[in-house]
Simulated assay, not measured.
Amino acid sequence: MTHIPNAINPHAAQPTSLAALGRSLWFNRQLIVQMTKREVAGRYKGSAMGLAWSFFNPVFMLVVYTFVFSEIFKARWGGIGGDDSKTQFAVVLFVGMIVLNLFSEVFNRAPGLILANVNYVKKVVFPVEILPVIAMLVALFHSLISLGVLLTAFAFFNGYLHWTVIFIPLILLPLITITLGLAWILASIGVFLRDVGQLVGIISTVLMFLAPVFYPLNMVPERFRPIIMANPLTFIIEQAREVLIWGHLPNWAGLGVYTTAATVVAWAGYAWFQKTRKGFADVL
């Protein structure tokens, strides 16, 4: 099993630089892939349909959204982008849900990542810093399936896809980066303070409702808009809709600022995790 220097001693000081993080991810790439595959397959182990559920779940949710919002609520997105078809609200909402689920799956799991893998900390030579990365890849797998369902539905409803969909990896990358930073912090704190898992659930719910998932941003009163914009999900959701639904180019300046901030958070989270991990074995 590949491992970084000092991994054999849980009390040894660990490197905290971005270069060290890059080396760890590269050296352990096969382990990361293997554990990601195992976790994805394990989630559906024992079910008759197996991995097919990863496809049918988002299909089912999109059908439900379309029915509820277009037939019962008669909801529309207000004609933004020049299109206000019957199913448009459900498709636009689904973009927000994909972004939200990518973030919240990792964010909610993070406090328990180390607690659920105590044997890796105490008994096995294992690079525990990759656990949040594995959780992110699992979440990303399901998000990509949902994204495929979304694009298929959009093409079916509208008869075309915007060429700007090619920018969606650039939109999601800073969200992945900042989420990993938060995951490293929460995974560490979760070892020493078990209540953090309960707090994270509350924060996740607050972030969901304070992001434009179920409503357009222009419906938010001006005095409350700074609160919504402070939500790290808001910018990504809006930009994802711009390239996927409305066919607009990303806000490059905003994306650059967000990516820079996300990189700082990721490095700080990784550094915090590496500085505190030497106490994991004592607590666990």
Rank of each mutant, 00 (worst) to 15 (best):
I8G: 04
Q14D: 02
T16N: 00
N28W: 01
R29M: 08
R29G: 04
I32K: 00
K37L: 12
R38K: 01
V40R: 06
A41F: 08
R43I: 05
R43F: 11
Y44Q: 08
A48C: 00
G50D: 06
L51F: 05
L51Q: 10
P58T: 09
M61W: 05
F69E: 04
I72V: 15
K74P: 02
W77Q: 03
G78E: 00
D84T: 03
D84A: 12
S85Y: 01
K86I: 08
Q88E: 08
A90C: 11
A90T: 09
V92M: 01
L93C: 08
M97D: 11
L102N: 10
F103D: 05
S104D: 12
A110V: 10
A110K: 04
P111S: 10
V118C: 02
V121C: 05
V133N: 09
I134E: 05
S143F: 02
T152C: 13
F157S: 11
T164I: 08
T164H: 06
L175G: 06
T177N: 06
I185Y: 05
S188N: 03
S188Q: 07
V191C: 13
R194D: 06
D195E: 14
V200A: 12
L207D: 04
A211S: 15
P216C: 15
N218K: 13
M219F: 10
E222H: 13
R223D: 12
I227S: 02
M229A: 10
N231M: 13
N231T: 12
P232L: 07
E238I: 14
E242N: 14
V243Q: 07
L244H: 02
I245P: 03
W246P: 00
G247D: 11
H248K: 15
L249D: 01
G254W: 09
G256E: 02
W272H: 14
R277I: 03
F280M: 11
A281L: 07
